[in-house]
Amino acid sequence: MVGPERAAWRRRDLLIASGLGACLPARAQGRSVTDGAGRRVNVPAQVQRIFPAGPPAAIWLYTLAPDALMGWPRANRGPELEFLLPGVGNRPEVGRLTGRGNTTNLEQLLASKPDLIVDAGSTRQTFVELADRVQAQTGIPYALLDGRLEATARGYTLLGELTGRVERAATLARYAQDTLRTVRERVARATTQPRVYYARGPEGLETGLGGSINVEMFEAMGIRHVAAGLQGGLATVSIEQVLAWDPEVIVTIDQTFSQTVAANPLWRGVSAVKSGRVHLSPKLPFGWIDFPPSVNRLPGLWWLGSKVFPSLFPEDLATLTRDFYKLFYQVDLSAAQVQRVLAGRS
Rank of each mutant, 00 (worst) to 15 (best):
A263C: 04
A170H: 11
S306M: 11
L209A: 10
W72V: 04
E216V: 03
L230H: 15
N76H: 14
A111D: 14
P265W: 08
L116N: 00
L180W: 04
R184W: 10
R74A: 14
R31S: 11
L69K: 02
S271G: 08
L85T: 05
Q241V: 06
R124Y: 12
R31F: 07
L205T: 12
V215G: 02
G208Y: 03
A170T: 12
E129P: 01
P92F: 06
G233T: 14
D132P: 05
T179N: 10
V166L: 12
S311M: 09
F218N: 06
T34D: 06
E129Y: 08
W9S: 09
L145F: 03
R74Q: 15
S294E: 01
R184I: 07
E185F: 13
L266W: 04
Y329K: 02
A45L: 13
R133H: 12
E5C: 05
G204C: 10
A188E: 13
A335W: 01
T138S: 13
A235P: 02
A7S: 12
I50A: 05
A7I: 13
W72D: 03
G204A: 08
Q337A: 12
G204L: 04
I250V: 14
D254V: 05
G30A: 15
L284C: 02
R340D: 10
A8V: 07
D119E: 13
T126R: 09
G210V: 08
R74G: 11
A22Q: 15
N90K: 11
E240M: 04
A143T: 02
G38N: 07
I289C: 11
T103E: 12
K113Y: 07
T171E: 14
N264H: 12
D290G: 13
A318M: 11
F328N: 01
T126S: 13
T236W: 08
F286E: 05
A37Y: 02
A22I: 09
P292E: 02
R154E: 15
V33E: 06
L97T: 02
F328D: 01
Y175R: 13
V341P: 05
A111P: 10
L145A: 03
S334T: 15
E82G: 09
L342E: 03
Y329H: 11
G38D: 09
L205K: 02
E80Y: 06
L312A: 11
A173Q: 06
E93R: 09
V237E: 04
T123K: 04
Q125I: 10
P79T: 05
L333Y: 02
G155K: 05
P310K: 12
G155L: 06
T260Q: 15
V226A: 03
G229L: 11
W302C: 03
A235C: 11
V94F: 01
A272W: 02
L116W: 02
F328W: 15
V270W: 08
G160V: 01
G19C: 06
K274P: 00
D246P: 07
W288G: 00
Y175P: 00
A28R: 15
G54M: 03
P25G: 09
T192D: 15
N90E: 15
P292N: 12
K283F: 04
L172N: 03
N42I: 06
D332T: 15
R133T: 11
F257K: 04
G101K: 09
Q125K: 14
R268M: 14
N76W: 03
G21R: 14
Y175N: 04
K283Q: 10
